[in-house]
Design a protein around this nucleic acid. Structure first.
Length: 820
RNA sequence: GCCGGAGUGGUGAAAUUGGUAGACACGUCGGAUUCAAAAUCCGAUGCCCUUAAAAGCGUGCCGGUUCGAGUCCGGCCUCCGGUACCA
């Protein structure tokens, strides 16, 4: 009876106690605390840190499990692994929560961090918690403020006017997210665009490097590199001037100077000085400018808005022909792009064509197709390159030839020149919000903008504030903003804008390396750990965050703080977690709380399902039934191991030979190693171990050879799964009699001798359709394979009435008989 | 609008370099075990026709290249991510 109970206890998989035990072991051994060691190869594995929104969601679980699997795999390969964790703790949601729950943002954030840290610990992630960074703490943002003053002194940070969404009623700036259908989300009044002074960092100075260095990023997905290239948007074109009566030269940029002879009007942005000035004496134009100023400033809204325009009354002189063309204001021309003015060639640009068609402006053809393409300018613009017509001296030239000839003519007359332009704009880092790092600048009437001296840093954000959401509290706190000028000692005011939260997330990966240093932003350890070997995060960060972080790394390099060019060697962009085909959200009511699943199944089951349900880069459809299945597999593995240890396994009905199972075993090691390392497809790695287990249970363990293969198989399966289900494997490894810590155990190696086969199965096709299967020796000749294929009964049936034309033999795979 | 993806059984998916479509699971059905249930184990399971076998059809839609296409090319459709102040 006692024996019976003992066996039942062992055979029963108890996740909760196993997980507690393993986590206590890692804690007591300080297993995951990373120390620089120049003698060992390092591996820095990083998942994008979370915004502390309240509790973990499934996207976090997936993100952090993927990174943890990679970190644990690399540890077993013998690397010195660093895997840190921290909090992207500034941002808008804390302000919203503050209004809703009447809690100050700092307190709300701190509470969330405490709760979420516990959840991460419960999931068994192998983090070095001694390096935790929290971006809303002064010991973090002081270095960001210090670095900004360095950039300011180098001339890389500057102030200029830029547009924001403005709500007149609430007297406040709105984020794009806070504008719903062109209206304020809180008071529902229409939003307008307004220009205010803002701080910018000159990312455009680094545009060329950021573009060129994409070529170094061998470990990045091609799609992300393409998106970044397109975002930077390098183009070669011509900058030229139209002379405008009563205004002077008006500069425009075009990538199609070959179409210059087809210009029938010029369009400027509503904010353009020319338009603003013209409106002063033209009330109708002034009303129009006001009416187009109330669109949301998001690009998607501007691009899809109905095209609207009005003539300014000015005319521009064509720089080559001297022809006079009208100057219009158009809502699709943006002041922040290029010079805020464009030349319009409605014959060969679709947007210009639509505008011209709507307002009855001339459309002229100056490019003719080289082939037979349709070119009906009454239906659409012809945007393909071709041969010039109606272009005077340039008639007959190709677009490429005309590009050069026209550029040369403009250059000769001093009205234009070839130039390279980038779509990328400078990075606006000012936010008119409370919950962010204060911008360390003092505005003095005499001295202008002056950076806060290093000895006075950090500029600490007051956290004991009343927060009502209408304007930032520090803008109403003289005790915060009243100060003296560091230059002249006279009365001055602090900047009350705070930094864009992308600032904090642009360098946190580096700070982890020197997290506890309170004397410097970064130290020599940064160059030991950096660059990050593996970065894991959502595809939604493919452009902004990853571009800003790449930019910041180059700024850190040029300040002498790091010695590499790029921050992230290899990047894995994980897909979203869906439920019923839609993104999980509170409003749809389709959320799944990871905590409830951890409580009922354990962390290992949640980790296993997250990794099994889909490859990391695809979206993952959540399924409660699938979680159940993952749990069942763990129970099965557990029982299989204990039945082996106790010698209580039943004899299988159709046993497999030890040799065949051992070959499968070593094939599995090879496949899983490739899946973890090169392919990063953890779902197929798990499937391969499941297949192995399905074969292992069919070993007859009353036979010593098979029993030995079973033992080898279990020790391998447990190590192969250890990165994914570390608690269970920690426990089983000990139960199998091993004294070592599996987290640092060596990864299993493939025994090449075990992989050798005598025979392989080939498929026989007739005209590409499978008609038979046959087994041949591995070294069978092409001729013997052809003969054997033709002799198959079902093949004979299909070639009886036709002539065999050709036989294709694909070694190790198939034979295709072509007949007709 | 623009840029980047995705679409395969009832479901999640696999097929790695153009070579057996559906591995591995979930679900369903049938069986074993049980007084019974849960749990567990065994078997079947793309669709269609069929007692069965064989054949036929089948990777969002239309067309192309090839001995051979889920995979490559051209043209669509739908959904998703980003679009510079959500993070």
């Amino acid at each position: 009876m006692a024996h019976h109970r003992k066996k039942r206890d062992n055979v029963q998989y108890q996740a909760a106690s196993i997980e507690q035990e393993a986590q206590a072991f890692w804690e007591s051994q300080a297993s995951f605390i990373a120390k620089p060691d120049p003698k060992r190869e390092k591996f820095y594995c990083l998942a994008m840190f979370p915004y502390p929104s309240g509790k973990l969601h499934m996207g976090h679980v997936r993100n952090y499990t993927i990174a943890d699997v990679i970190a644990r795999f690399q540890r077993m390969l013998g690397k010195n692994v660093l895997q840190p964790m921290g909090w992207d703790a500034f941002g808008l949601p804390a302000e919203n929560a503050a209004i809703k729950n009447n809690v100050p943002p700092a307190a709300w954030t701190a509470e969330n961090i405490d709760y979420m840290r516990d959840q991460l610990k419960r999931l068994g992630f192998a983090y070095d918690w001694t390096r935790e960074v929290t971006t809303c703490e002064p010991d973090y943002y002081r270095w960001e403020q210090w670095f900004f003053t360095r950039l300011f002194e180098k001339g890389l940070a500057y102030k200029k006017q830029a547009e924001v969404n403005w709500c007149e009623t609430d007297n406040t700036v709105l984020a794009n997210e806070q504008v719903v259908d062109g209206c304020c989300w809180r008071c529902d009044n229409p939003v307008e665009r307004r220009n205010i002074d803002q701080w910018f960092i000159k990312i455009t100075d680094y545009a060329e490097q950021l573009l060129n260095d994409i070529n170094q990023l061998d470990g990045w997905p091609e799609q992300v590199k393409t998106m970044q290239r397109n975002w930077i948007g390098r183009s070669e074109g011509v900058e030229l001037q139209f002379d405008v009566d009563g205004h002077g030269p008006l500069s425009v940029y075009t990538t199609r100077p070959d179409t210059l002879m087809g210009v029938t009007y010029v369009a400027v942005a509503g904010q353009h000085p020319l338009a603003q000035k013209a409106a002063e004496s033209n009330p109708e134009l002034k009303a129009f400018l006001n009416s187009i100023a109330n669109t949301k400033m998001a690009e998607a809204d501007l691009a899809t808005a109905e095209k609207l325009g009005m003539a300014t009354g000015h005319t521009a002189i064509h720089p080559i022909t001297g022809r006079e063309v009208p100057v219009w204001v158009a809502n699709f021309v943006l002041m922040s792009y290029g010079s805020g003015a464009v030349m319009a060639v409605p014959g060969h640009d679709q947007r210009d064509w639509e505008f011209a068609t709507k307002y009855g402006l001339d459309i002229e053809q100056v490019i003719q197709s080289c082939s037979d393409d349709d070119c009906d300018l009454s239906k659409a613009a012809y945007t393909t390159k071709g041969t010039l017509v109606n272009s005077g001296d340039y008639n007959g030239l190709s677009s490429a030839e005309a590009f050069e000839a026209i550029a040369a003519a403009l250059e000769a007359s001093g009205t234009g020149h070839k130039t390279v332009q980038y779509r990328l704009r400078d990075w606006g880092v000012s936010r008119q919000r409370y919950w962010g790092a204060p911008i360390p600048i003092i505005n003095c009437e005499k001295c202008g903008a002056v950076s806060v001296p290093e000895k006075d840093l950090p500029v600490v954000l007051p956290t004991d504030v009343e927060f009502d959401g209408v304007g930032s509290p520090i803008k109403k706190m003289p005790e915060f903003y009243t100060t003296t000028c560091p230059c002249c000692g006279g009365p001055a005011e602090r900047e009350t804008d705070t930094f864009d939260t992308f600032m904090e997330s642009s360098w946190y990966y580096a700070r982890y390396a020197s997290a506890t240093n309170d004397q410097a932003m970064l130290d020599k350890d940064a160059n030991y750990w950096l660059p990050v070997d593996q970065y894991v995060g959502g595809i939604e960060h493919a452009i902004l965050h990853l571009l800003y972080a790449r930019f910041f790394h180059k700024l850190l390099r040029d300040e002498g703080l790091v010695n590499s060019d790029e921050p992230f060697k290899r990047l894995l962009t994980q897909g979203m977690v869906l439920k019923d085909g839609a993104k999980m959200s509170k409003s749809k009511g389709n959320t799944v709380d990871p905590q409830a699943l951890i409580d009922s199944y354990g962390a290992d089951t949640v980790r296993l399902f997250s990794m099994f349900a889909a490859p990391p880069e695809q979206s993952l459809e959540w399924s409660d039934a699938g979680v159940d299945g993952a749990h069942r597999f763990l129970k099965r593995l557990w029982r299989m191991a204990f039945e082996h240890i106790e010698g209580s396994a039943d004899t299988p009905e159709k046993p497999l030979t030890a040799k065949d199972v051992r070959r499968k075993l070593h094939e599995t090691i090879a496949k899983v190693t490739d899946d973890y390392g090169r392919r990063q497809t953890f779902n197929t790695a798990i499937a391969a171990v499941m297949e192995l287990c399905n074969e292992l249970v069919r070993l007859d363990q009353s036979n010593a050879t098979s029993r030995e293969v079973m033992r080898e198989g279990l020790s391998v399966a447990v190590r192969l799964l250890a990165p994914i289900v570390p608690h269970l494997c920690h426990s089983l490894w000990q139960a199998l009699g091993y004294k070592s810590d599996i987290a640092n155990e060596a990864w299993p190696e493939v025994d090449q001798a075990a992989l050798i086969r005598d025979e392989i199965e080939l498929v026989v096709q007739v005209n590409g359709k499978v008609r038979a299967k046959m087994s041949v020796g591995v070294d069978a000749s092409k001729e013997s394979i052809e003969q054997l294929a033709l002799a198959q009964d079902n093949v004979q049936k299909f070639i009886a009435d036709v002539t065999v034309r050709k036989i294709i033999v694909v070694p190790g795979r198939l034979v295709n008989i072509v007949a007709n």
